[in-house]
Write a protein that binds this DNA or RNA. Sequence first.
DNA 1: AGATGTGAATGAGTTCACAGCT
DNA 2: AGCTGTGAACTCATTCACATCT
Lengths: 213, 213
Amino acid sequence: MSMLPPLAGDVSPLTLNRLSLYLRCLRQLREAGISRTSSQDLADRYRLSAAQIRKDLAQFGEFGIRGVGYDVDNLTDRLSRILRLDEPHPIVIVGMGNLGSALASYLGFNHGSFQVVAGVDTDPAKVGQRVAGFVVRPTEELADVVRESKAEIGVLTVPAQAAQSNYDRLVEAGVRAVLNFAPIRLREADGVSLKDVDLRIHLEELAFFLPSL
Amino acid sequence: MSMLPPLAGDVSPLTLNRLSLYLRCLRQLREAGISRTSSQDLADRYRLSAAQIRKDLAQFGEFGIRGVGYDVDNLTDRLSRILRLDEPHPIVIVGMGNLGSALASYLGFNHGSFQVVAGVDTDPAKVGQRVAGFVVRPTEELADVVRESKAEIGVLTVPAQAAQSNYDRLVEAGVRAVLNFAPIRLREADGVSLKDVDLRIHLEELAFFLPSL
DNA sequence: AGATGTGAATGAGTTCACAGCT
DNA sequence: AGCTGTGAACTCATTCACATCT
């Protein structure tokens, strides 16, 4: 039976995160030289739910063979394609402070499809510095930087009060997605996906479970 | 009517994250000199759901006055107490590479209750370096470091293959919570809460929404 | 026989709508 | 009159259980 890919908006972030996870597991199996698996096998090895794996995959098509299981290479490729990890994704970092620089080094390496290709900052002391394979440019030149580097994704690592204006600039400059580390709720532009990462909230979640004094 | 605090395990992470968010909003109101608010007022200002605010708070008690609303100072204090942000929480960082060092600087400052007080690494080149107000110590001394610094929370910023052993060490050393940045599912110890932050997964979630070539 | 793919059942989380208090 | 606090309705997500295919 034929299967249309679901509209992007119809897939829940929960499902999407699990697909990333499955892909990571599959890559490990591949490295271990294992060429066939099953939902149950994956569930056992990585403490996942077999039913959920099948349900998640079912949203995108039929990838297995009944009575047999999944071909590791094939499923890896299909998931990579679904998550668009079969194409390179150039990234620009806005705000080359501690966190921005760390992410440049951290994400710049070994991550096949994601590549940090540029970074900007308003601080003249940072402009011109060489970090993780590129030279920091002034934020004023962001539009040029995005065009020249063909950056698709912007990473926002500026202070909260500068986040909205820099987000707007990124959108204006033409990026299609933004990963925001500033602890503030941004007014979103349509057609540009946004994902917030709030390190403080994660810590506060842990603090709740700490025993009191 | 009296209200018992819910058992820690009964509160969903979603609720907890929203409580952190509400607290951040309240602090902003306080800074702006606003002393009274309501669920609707918060919802309007910060694009939240009024009903959800009330439901979230209801899990912990009654904090408002019917017909009136909430006292900003009072609710701020109550939420701070619930999230244990009324006490200091010393943090130790395991793995002082790019990300670890960045987090030390990023979290070390301006975050009232969280304070990065120590960091360890196995790399002799990093040991002895001064970062964000402390001197990096060797990972072998982790137990001593935790005891001396009274660290409650461990932040794991080591490569994936070293994560489990370092997690075990942290647990052994006596921390009560771990924030893990390594992209691997750890085998958890009881009584120690664990929160995973996976930067790659966030990027992959964004990539899915990118237009294809 | 054995594992997939899927409707049906269950559970979690959110929104609605209103009784009850100030 | 107005806003909280809350049961009931609803929506979203996960798990179950089995018909279907190799």
